[in-house]
Each structure stands twice: as C-alpha cells, then as structure tokens.
C-alpha cells in the first residue's frame, strides 16, 4: 500500500516536472488604464482568426470603437490555413501575429508543445470559465464554441421529409442534394468527423460517400451553398452561419441530429512573440469580455462559456441539444487516418 502510493507520488512529481507547464499559470489580469495606454502606444493588433470574416471584422470594429487609436488587423482563413500559416511563420522566425484563434483544439495542444504561446489569463476566464474549457497552465482558453449541424432549405425540402438524423442522410433521395465541408481544410469538420467516426463508425462515411456529395472546404461554406440554392441539405457546417443566414431571411432550418450534434471548441491565445504585446493582452482580454462574447453570440451565432451571456430568443439553448463532445487529445493521433479514410470515401 505504502510502496504504491509512493510510486504514484513519484510518478506524479516526475510528470509535473516533465510537462512544459511546470510553472504556475500566470496571475489573472484585468483591463487597466495602464494596459490601455500601453496598448495605444503600440497602435495596432494583428488577429489571426478562423471565425467567419464578417463576424471577426465586426468584433474588430467594436474593439476599435471602444479603444480608439488601436487598429485591429483581421487575418481570416480556414482553421487549417491559419495553422499552416502560423507554422510557416514561427518555424522561420517571422512574428507577425499577436492573437490567434482557430476552431481546431488540436492546434493549441501543438502550439503549447512547440512553445509558441504566451501564458495569459484574463480575469473573467480565471473566475468564470469552466475548468475544462481553459488550459490549466494558462496558455489558452475556449474563446468560442459552435456546433456542426445538419440543415436544409425549407423551400426545397418539406418539413416532414426533412432528415432527423445522420442515418436519414443515407436515403437515396438525397443523392446529389448534399453538401459538406472537408476535414483536411476545416478544423470544425475535422473535429466533427472524428466525433462522428467514433459514434457512427467509418461505415457511415463509406455509405455517405456514395451519395454524390458536393465537397466544399471550409465549414462556413456548406450553409452558404444552401443559401445559394446549390444544394438542399448540408451534412455538416457551422451552426452560426445558419443562424446568420436565417436572420437575413434565407429559408434554412437547422436539424439537431438524433445521434447527437458535434460540438467544436475554438480556443484563442496570445502568441509567444507578439509584435504588440500590450495591445495583444488588451485584445485578448476583450475577446472574453461579456461585450465581445455577447456580440459573437448575437451577431455571430456562436456559443459561449461566459456565465452572464443572454441566450438569444428563438435559438435552441445548448443544454437542450444532444451533443457529441470533442476529444482533442484523442484526435491528434488520428488525423492521418481520418484524412486517408476520408479521401478513400469522398475522393478528395
């Protein structure tokens, strides 16, 4: 008994020593007038993001209004492109970006491992974010969450004919009517594909691959293909884009699949060598503020971990939706398999 507990203690000690986060997470910080002044002197902040470009630009605009004199440069691309770009930049010593955000949680595990992040914990994150939605060492935190949903055009599909589950999508009547994003390109789809392959098995994708699915890249694109009227049903795609298109009056209906809807966490972090360190801190703290989170939610249709956030009327609250939870650590080792399987079934 005694020997065993010693062994456990020793092991725990060794692990704590070996992990890069041996140091305590930094003390939480708040937005102070000194921070704002220092940020204003730097004059700008560079934000690498995978959020939909109109949402990201809107967030930037409200930040600029709130802190005049600090310009936000928004660099939007798909999660994997952002990842590829920052990988190229940091491995060659180019330090352009201040704050980074993608919808692929695996990225942040890798960034942390590579030592590309600066630990920073805004006060609100320390106080009210669920422990599992922030890095224990303070390197990153869940800036947003969203769902990858099935959706359809109400004017092309009658509600009684609409799919209720992923299994329904295998019906031959959907042949040539489906659109879906690509896991190699989109972090959201990668996370969702991983969760679905666990829940439904790869046979599901093998069958889906025979449905003549229109293959797009980013997870923002399937909803837009619905809006365009190019396909009637999306297999996956961002819930927030569907919300936004609904608000524009486009007849799209969201389906929360019977098997569960994949949840996707989007982390944010300050990079290791931000060209504008104070502006980066200010902007990073702003990202988690109620104002920004509410804007992301109301205008951007994103889900949030901020406890005071008011859910917008007409949207199904997160707690009422059956979810497929992400598993970033498990996904990391399976990316290769997912990509090659996917190519086998879908051709790209």
């Amino acid at each position: 008994m005694w020997a065993k507990s010693v062994a456990v203690a020793a092991l725990a000690g060794a692990m704590a020593w070996a992990s890069p986060g041996q140091a305590e997470p930094p003390a939480p910080y708040d937005i102070t007038p000194e921070l704002i002044d220092a940020a204003k002197k730097e004059g700008s902040v560079v934000f690498y993001t995978a959020t939909d470009v109109t949402v990201a630009e809107k967030l930037a605009a409200t930040f600029e209004q709130k802190y005049p004199g600090i310009k936000v440069q928004v660099e939007r691309a798909g999660s994997e492109r952002v990842f590829q770009r920052i990988g190229q930049e940091y491995s060659t010593g180019v330090y352009n970006a201040d704050v980074i955000e993608t919808s692929d949680a695996v990225h942040f595990l890798l960034f942390k491992k590579e030592g590309w992040l600066t630990p920073a914990v805004p006060k609100v994150v320390a106080e009210s974010w669920p422990a599992e939605e922030r890095d224990p060492d303070g390197f990153f935190a869940a800036y947003r969450a969203h769902l990858s949903v099935i959706a359809y055009r109400k004017d092309q599909v009658k509600p009684e004919d609409a799919p209720k589950s992923f299994a329904d999508l295998l019906d031959p009547k959907w042949k040539g009517k489906l659109v879906k994003g690509h896991p190699g390109y989109s972090g959201t789809i990668m996370t969702a594909t991983h969760a679905m392959s666990k829940a439904l098995g790869w046979e599901y994708f093998e069958k889906l691959g025979k449905q003549d699915v229109m293959q797009v890249q980013s997870s923002t694109e399937p909803p837009k293909k619905l809006a365009q009227g190019e396909r009637s049903v999306e297999v996956d795609g961002n819930e927030y884009n569907c919300f936004r298109l609904q608000e524009e009056g486009i007849p799209i209906e969201i389906v929360y699949a019977a098997e569960g809807t994949p949840l996707v966490i989007g982390n944010a972090a300050i990079l290791k060598n931000p060209p504008h360190p104070n502006a980066a801190k200010l902007f990073y703290a702003y990202l988690f503020s109620l104002e920004a989170q509410q804007l992301n939610h109301d205008f951007g249709g994103l889900r949030s971990f901020h406890p005071e956030l008011k859910e917008k009327a007409g949207r199904t609250p997160l707690k009422d939706i059956k979810l497929m939870l992400p598993d970033a650590a498990g996904l990391e080792s399976e990316i290769e398999t997912i990509k090659s399987r996917y190519e086998e079934y879908f051709g790209t």
Binding site: D52, V53, R76, A77, G78, R81, Y185, V216, Q217, S218, T220, E221, P223, K224, K225, A227, Q228
Partner: peptide, 9 residues
C-alpha cells in the same frame, strides 16, 4: 481565394 473558401460570392 480565401473568400471563396468561406463562400462569400
């Protein structure tokens, strides 16, 4: 190209 990936025609 970036905009095309997000479908902003």
């Amino acid at each position: 190209y970036d905009l095309n990936e997000s479908g902003d025609l």
